[in-house]
């Protein structure tokens, strides 16, 4: 049983790493950021935040992400 739990933890770790490496967790990070901003905006004045950003849906977020890459290309190494 302990071995099985170890394997599961290990597999979860590998999957977590792979997702992070490929950037699959980008939307989760965006949501977390948005939530933190929102929570802070409620109790602090948030005056310097400018216009509030509406939360993007998952589909919108990924489109926005590749569109930003179009405008801001990054080199790959040789």
């Amino acid at each position: 049983m302990i071995l099985w739990a170890g394997v599961r933890t290990g597999a979860r770790g590998v999957l977590w790493y792979l997702k992070g490496l490929l950037g699959e967790d980008a939307y989760e990070k965006y949501l977390a950021h948005h939530a933190a901003l929102h929570a802070a905006g409620a109790d602090v004045d948030g005056a310097d935040e400018g216009a509030p950003h509406p939360l993007m849906t998952e589909r919108e977020f990924w489109r926005d992400q590749t569109d930003r890459q179009d405008q801001n290309p990054q080199g790959r190494c040789c």
């Binding site: 490496l21 965006y30 990054q74």
Partner: peptide
């Protein structure tokens, strides 16, 4: 500068792999 997109704190081990994949190429 966190914006949840371009500026986003990333786990150091993930970022290590990310950075390595970006610098390692055919050279």
């Amino acid at each position: 500068k966190a914006d949840g997109k371009d500026f986003a704190a990333t786990d150091r081990r993930v970022l290590f792999g990310h950075h390595f994949a970006a610098i390692a190429g055919a050279g």
